[in-house]
Amino acid sequence: LVQDRSKYIKLRARGLYRDDVQAAVRQSHHNPGLQAMYKSFAGQPLSQLAEQLFHTGYIDRTGL
């Protein structure tokens, strides 16, 4: 007997899609708190401050 392994995964996924559908704002670019943060702090995406705080690089670990 093979149990349906995906059932709990599907239920959790549905929960998040429900959260999306009932949200007052559906798109990231319309998030008012985020717009306020850019306006008063980071400026705009990919600004110098944004690059410094919110971007990163990766490491070739095969040499480490």
């Binding site: 998040l16 899609y17 959260d19 559908v21 990231s28 985020l34």
Partner: peptide, 18 residues
């Protein structure tokens, strides 16, 4: 709390394809 505000797009990050 402005840092607890999120869009529907943000919440679906937990799903594949989100």
């Amino acid at each position: 709390n402005p840092l607890a505000q999120y869009s529907g797009a943000g919440t679906i990050f937990g799903n594949t394809g989100g």
